[in-house]
Structure formats: structure tokens, C-alpha cells
Design a protein around this nucleic acid. Structure first.
Lengths: 147, 147
DNA sequence: CAGGATCCCGCTAGATACTG
DNA sequence: CAGTATCTAGCGGGATCCTG
């Protein structure tokens, strides 16, 4: 007979990862995915590129080329874009497909895992955009009070 | 008659902020809220402290004292905790209440705005915890393939 | 107890230049 | 086109000491 019961195993699995604990790997994972560029890349791939002009009409998730992403995420350096994409690929959130044309074509696409994270994070970018004015107002009052 | 129609104003408001644009203030805001400590602080205040042992039973949002937060967010330095709380207060996401006892008592609580962001972000921490194993597996296969 | 103020280090973002 | 390589400045963030 096993020394650990099924109940004990379930209990352990339940608290297996806790990001409140410093040493927990999920803390590191949380740190990686809590980044500006990750949020924007997921939003780009998950919504099928730039926001449509006839807003409200969000695109489907689709593969995008490196240069497309580079153009859409204005101001991102090549290094950061490549680096972030690599890390996402390593974690299994995106796939990297190389088509040996001349010149070579590389496209990125969300995996199912990446798509599930996108669903969690798509709201963040929107939240920042829609509540920007509130935050700006709050800052003004805060700064004026502090004198 | 105004030179801008209501429709034009609505159209402008609709694309007022876009985090894909480098110069947009929402890009900076996104950067601020996309941080490990922000995510964890919001999770702490929004779920009323540490995860209940009888899991599934999430607490209500409630005020927490500085020392409570400090204990819960294992490994956070005083500097980062104070700094992050200040920034959240300035942006109007949390309130800071000082009770003039001896010694002084300081508590933090989510505002409505902070609560709305918490609803967007609560999933992130959970996602990291529940998909940790998947990610770990993906990393292994990635690293082994790359030789 | 709840910070403020400093010092300081590491990393990492960003710019630039080069390449298959 | 889609990167890699290299360098550097800046700052995120930890450690320490101090205070109301």
C-alpha cells in the first residue's frame, strides 16, 4: 500500500503552485507573462493583427509574420521582439514556422495554450485604453494634493 | 454649428488610446500594470488575503495592512512594496488609510477602479499556477530539441 | 509599525552594426 | 526578411540604515 493516500495527493496537487510563494516557479512564470510586450504580442496574434477601422469587428486569431508584428508593435526593438517571441515559443505559447523562400519567411501563431492566455489578457490592454482618462485624472488630483 | 459632429467625436473617442502606438500614454499604463507585484497585490486585496485552506472558498475584497501584504507577498522588498502601492494609489486603484494609533496603522483597499482591474487580472495568477506544468513540459521538449 | 533615504549592483532594454 | 552580435546607459530592485 502506498504511504500517501489519494486524498493526500489531491490535497498536495491543490496547493502545488502558489505565486505568493517566492520560490514557486509560477512566480517566475507570472513575471514573464506580466510584461508589456507579451501582452501586446498576444493581443496582436489573438486578434488577427491591427484593430479594424470599423471597430467592434475584431479579427480571428491568425499567424503573423515577424515584420508584421514589428510594424504593429510600434517602437519595439528587434531584440525585444525576437527575445519575447523566443520565450513564448519555448513556453509553448506560440509556434514559429519558417518557410524557406528567398528571402526566408517566418510566421508566428498562437498555440491552444497561448490562446487560453490571450483570453485572460485581452482585457488588460483594453482596460488600459478605456480607463486611461480616469487614471490621468486621479494622478492630477493626487499630485496637486501632495503639493 | 460645431465644426465637429457628434459622430466624429465618437469616432475619435473610439481610437483615442491605442497601446500599439509607442507614444500613447496607455502604453505606459500597460507597462505599469503589467508587473508581477501589481498582479500579486491586486490578487491579495481582491481576494481578501491568502488563499483559504479549504480552497474554492475565495474571500471578499477587503482592506489589508502593510505588514499583512508584506507577509503574504513572500520575498517582496519594502522598497518595491511601498513603491508599487504608491503608484497604485496615485493612479486611483487603491486607497491608503492612516489610522493614528500608536504605533500608526496603515491599511490599503481597492477602489472601484482597482476592483475592475482586479477582475481582469485575477485570472492571470491562476493561469500561471494551473498551466505551470504544461509550460515546464514545453520547455523541456524545446530545450532538448535545440540540443 | 510603516515606511523614508541611500547606496549600489546586475541585468536588461535599446541603439547600432553586421549577416544568411 | 528575419534575425544575430555587441556595447552601453539606465534603472529595477535588493540591502542597509534611519525615523515618526
Amino acid at each position: 500500500m502506498a504511504t500517501t493516500t489519494a486524498a493526500q495527493q489531491r490535497a498536495q496537487a491543490k496547493v502545488e503552485y502558489d505565486a505568493f510563494v517566492a520560490a514557486c516557479p509560477s512566480r517566475k512564470l507570472l513575471d514573464r507573462i506580466s510584461s508589456k510586450w507579451v501582452t501586446l504580442i498576444l493581443a496582436a496574434l489573438g486578434n488577427g493583427g491591427p484593430p479594424q477601422l470599423d471597430a467592434g469587428c475584431r479579427g480571428e486569431p491568425r499567424a503573423m509574420r515577424y515584420s508584421e508584428l514589428s510594424r504593429l508593435l510600434a517602437g519595439v526593438s528587434q531584440k525585444m521582439l525576437t527575445q519575447t517571441l523566443r520565450s513564448l515559443e519555448r513556453d509553448g505559447l506560440v509556434t514559429r514556422t519558417v518557410t524557406p523562400t528567398v528571402p526566408v519567411t517566418v510566421s508566428y501563431e498562437l498555440t491552444d495554450l497561448g490562446l487560453s492566455l490571450h483570453h485572460m489578457m485581452r482585457g488588460i490592454k483594453t482596460w488600459a485604453e478605456t480607463h486611461m482618462d480616469d487614471v490621468l485624472t486621479n494622478r492630477e488630483t493626487y499630485d496637486s494634493r501632495a503639493s
